[in-house]
Amino acid sequence: MTGPTWGTADRRLLIVHAHPDDESIQTAGVIARYLDAGAEVTVVTCTLGEEGEVIGQRWAQLVADGGADQLGGYRILELTRALSILSPSARVLEPHFLGGAGRWRDSGMAGSPAARNPRAFTRAGDEPVELLTDLIVERRPQVVVGYDPAGTYGHPDHVGVHRVSTEAVAAAAERGWSVSKHYWSVSERSAVVDGLAAAVDRVPAGWRMPADGELPSYPDDQITTEIDIRAVYERKVDAMAAHATQITVAPSRREYALSNDILQPIPDAEHFILVRGQAHPEGGRETDLFAGVVDDGSDDAPR
């Protein structure tokens, strides 16, 4: 059996994330929806998330700080399970680690000792850009999704993903493949506010509601694109639950918490800001990441 011929599907989507679980929290609905529609989807993960905290006691000794430092390997399994949940049974998506699994290490939160590790993603220089550029040229996605300049919530690896994806999209254009549309994955403010309001009477024991402004979001008028994920919502929640060392899903299945036990809503749409390419339709929010993509993106996309 031969492998896939990259760049031949009508729609090709490449999504870049920092750690295992980011794909499920931020873009699981989009992954499942476009896989179901027959699109070619590549999910790129840049580290194994070795510096993450662990929820509960079962796997607590896998942590890096004072533990076995085996968490990264276990999170490969969680990512594999999550992508399998999001995939059609006949076409299961496999993880793709930039540079190979373990090439770069989770840099930890800002100011942590992990950032001084020579293998930390934040110390990788231009190599991630070069490798992601190669992948874009090889797989020829019309659409690339990355992060905003703040890296969603300021984690250094998320900020690094913003830099790497932005520079790789530009470099790929110089090498002959111009991505038609480049998006930032973001949270819509009203979706966050409405989700928190709905959850106020069902906060699980030991969790707390976030303080005003504690959860990052963008004003509604800055959102260019809204993807309805209701048809795949349950798979998104199951994919999030597959990252059990990192995520606890509330009994309502409408909220979740990380190891900090701060409640966060799970909206039934995923939101994006278009930063390269032409938004469609004019004057309204897009409802399809591929809106306006005519063919291969190599000739008509802005450079």
Rank of each mutant, 00 (worst) to 15 (best):
I227E: 13
D212C: 01
G67L: 08
V161Y: 07
V92S: 09
Y74I: 04
P216R: 04
F97H: 14
L13I: 03
E78H: 12
L35R: 12
R175C: 05
Q26N: 02
D238A: 14
T80F: 04
M209A: 12
H158Q: 07
D228Y: 07
A171R: 15
V63F: 01
R75C: 00
Q278W: 01
R140L: 13
D220W: 02
Y34S: 06
E40L: 03
E51A: 15
Q70V: 00
L135H: 06
V161K: 02
S217W: 01
K181Q: 12
D238Y: 00
T224W: 05
V129G: 06
A269L: 05
Y218H: 12
S112F: 03
A115R: 14
L13V: 01
D212E: 15
D106V: 10
I76Y: 11
E255W: 01
D300R: 08
G277R: 00
E40P: 05
G213I: 04
R33C: 01
E167Y: 03
M209D: 08
V193N: 06
T2V: 06
H162Q: 06
E282H: 03
P20A: 06
A242Y: 13
L215A: 04
T287D: 10
E282Y: 01
A211N: 09
A110R: 11
P265V: 11
P210F: 04
Q246T: 08
G283P: 07
G7D: 10
T245S: 15
T245K: 04
N260T: 11
P95T: 12
V143F: 13
L263C: 09
H96F: 13
I85F: 09
L48E: 01
E234V: 05
D157E: 07
Y233T: 10
G283Q: 05
Q142G: 10
P302V: 06
A32T: 08
A171N: 08
C46W: 00
A211F: 08
S165E: 04
R33F: 03
L77A: 14
L93Y: 10
F272Y: 15
V203C: 12
G151R: 02
I273V: 15
G72H: 03
A241V: 08
V159H: 01
E214V: 08
P216H: 03
E255T: 15
V41H: 11
A205I: 06
E53L: 13
E51I: 02
R139M: 07
L35A: 14
I25F: 14
R285M: 09
V275P: 14
L79A: 15
R58S: 13
S178C: 11
E226M: 13
P88W: 11
